[in-house]
Write a protein that binds this DNA or RNA. Structure first.
Lengths: 228, 228
DNA sequence: CGATTTACTTGATCGAAATCAATGGTGCGA
DNA sequence: TCGCACCATTGATTTCGATCAAGTAAATCG
């Protein structure tokens, strides 16, 4: 089960530098599991029994309080969760659910902590991963608090544009509902914001995007390496 | 200069477990500096030259974009910033300014990275600190996104209440302006929210707080260990 | 002591986004 | 092919908080 994925796991940044022995210790108790869409993987408040690594699919991290719910992150292949809870041996602060059919590796938290204690290369990898997660969280907070929804979409489209080889015409990789979640707004407001972008060099037809005026879009979006 | 503070630095969680040799290496290039109120200590985008540790005073972490500004954290004694940028050797994502007269230790980032590489106890302390920062950031995001401003204040008052030995009458430790920043709102809305809490078991007079009905306040605030 | 700044409060208005509601389009299975 | 989900769009309304505008009280300073 696990062996079919050994190589891709080994290549993940978190494991690339650890010794062969440590890697065996980490994978011995680990297993790979497939989940259907909309499966709740972990629930906030539960003890952090496993570190999860996404192999394929799409995971939403969210949190609830008093019947309200907010989406905090969207994760894809190679992302991990929730490292901080695993390390500190504290309860999860977030819940996770699949948005589509997904495959994950689950590694017992005790194994993570044990290897962390004695393999300094693994400890370094963890620090690097944690620091990256932290900076990602800060960037997300800035994106949300400093920009309007139209500005967030404009920057999102610029990133997609470059991810598609700077083609002026491309298709969105996700359904709009998911993009709305990802950008922290409702799908109604996403629609309105897309409509609004017609004034800023973007044509939208279904999930076909045409950048009609790149300079205008950039002038509106003002992408910033300290946020994006 | 530094020697007067050596003991309190040594006692910080980040340094408590490191060897004497590592501690010397960390403090050799470090220095203590005093800042007046409203001094800008670091600016987002600058290279991460120093890890900062607050000895006394109060520091606001904030970020700007396109003339807008948002306050992200308020730090006090024993808090550190910005560890993640130092570790990854990336630019700061946030700016920092003093809110009052403050004293800080500044440790060259290279020294942090050097000791981190070879002292695994220090590496562990860094992981613990980073994980704590990360979880703090998540809690902050949940507090902000899942609660209204009145609810945030209600929970803030409950924490102050317990910090003052569960006395029903106590004085606020900060000026309201600062509390507003800390809770992510304007001082006008803080005033309104305080007024609103009169319906939920709290009397406010200047910076004197009287909890007239604790159960009512708790019922309104719904404190949650996964947020507070 | 009076003058000026600073902190706080309160009211009025504005704006961004959420919510509610209605409708149109598309794919899918019976 | 018909119905049925599900997604997306659009409009109307509401809500929360920000902003603007006075005005008061307390603190500081000449």
């Amino acid at each position: 089960m696990l062996s079919r994925h050994i190589d891709e796991i080994r290549a993940l940044p978190l494991f690339a530098q650890v010794s062969e022995a440590s890697f065996r210790d980490l994978t011995r108790g680990a297993y790979v599991q497939n989940f259907p869409p909309r499966a709740e993987l972990i629930t906030e408040g539960d003890p952090a029994d496993f570190l999860h690594v996404v192999i394929s699919g799409c995971i939403e991290m969210f949190a609830s309080w008093q019947g309200r719910e907010t989406s905090l992150f969207l994760l894809g292949p190679q992302d991990t969760f929730i490292l901080a809870a695993t390390i500190k041996d504290r309860p999860y602060l977030m819940s996770a659910r699949t948005l589509e059919k997904s495959r994950l590796i689950m590694i017992p938290s005790e194994d993570i902590r044990a290897v962390f204690e004695r393999d300094s290369d693994f400890a370094k990898a963890i620090v690097s991963e944690l620091a990256a997660c932290y900076r990602g969280a800060i960037k997300g907070a800035k994106n949300l608090r400093l920009r309007t929804s139209s500005e967030r979409i404009a920057n999102f489209l610029l990133k997609e544009y470059h991810a598609h080889g700077a083609q002026e015409r491309f298709a969105l990789d996700f359904e709009k509902k998911r993009i709305a979640t990802f950008l922290g707004m409702t799908r109604e407001n996403l629609s309105r914001a897309f409509a609004n972008l017609r004034n800023h060099g973007v044509q939208v037809d279904g999930n076909e995007i045409v950048i009609t005026d790149l300079d205008k879009l950039i002038a509106f979006a003002r992408p910033d390496p300290l946020i994006d």
